[in-house]
């Protein structure tokens, strides 16, 4: 299974401050550990929300809202994508991460990534077939 480990934004990350030397070194070491264990699939850090935007949907209307966004703690500042056999294994890996915002309380959130099998009984052969048909129709129209 795959898990996304979400790094939440902080005042510092939103102000565009880069992590200090020490944290960078610790993060580098941790990333190396993940890679050496064969569990790291991808990972990126995100620029502050002031450089981002949102598109708000309301019925058929789309409104563009430029960053920055206020609710810092709800914002995402980066992520890892890891491969693990269970949520517990993902938790064990995340516990080994350096504190992403030293000197402050911070959280890393672990979320499992959907895979086709996860749709389980809801995604019956008939539904799959229907989806296949739709895909085939779309392909024909291209």
């Amino acid at each position: 299974m795959r898990f996304m480990v979400i790094v939440k934004a902080t005042k510092g990350s939103e102000a565009g401050e880069l992590p200090d030397q020490k944290l960078l070194a610790e993060m580098g070491k941790y990333n190396e550990e993940l890679a050496k264990a064969g569990v790291m699939l991808a990972g990126e850090g995100l620029q502050p929300s002031s450089k981002g935007a949102r598109v708000r949907f309301s019925g058929s209307k789309r409104t563009v809202i430029d960053g920055p966004f206020a609710e810092t703690k709800e914002l995402v500042a980066g992520f890892w994508l890891i491969q693990a056999k269970s949520k517990e294994e993902a938790i064990e890996w995340v516990k080994r991460a350096p504190n992403p915002s030293p000197g402050q309380e911070s959280e890393l959130e672990i979320r499992q990534v959907f895979e086709a099998e996860d749709f389980g009984a809801e995604f019956t052969p008939e539904l799959r077939e229907q989806e296949e048909r739709i895909r085939a129709q779309v392909a024909e129209k291209k």
Partner: peptide
């Protein structure tokens, strides 16, 4: 039960 699952995960990693 949580601890057992955690031990299982630690074992897999270590």
């Amino acid at each position: 039960a949580d601890t057992l699952r955690a031990i299982d995960a630690v074992w897999r990693i270590e």
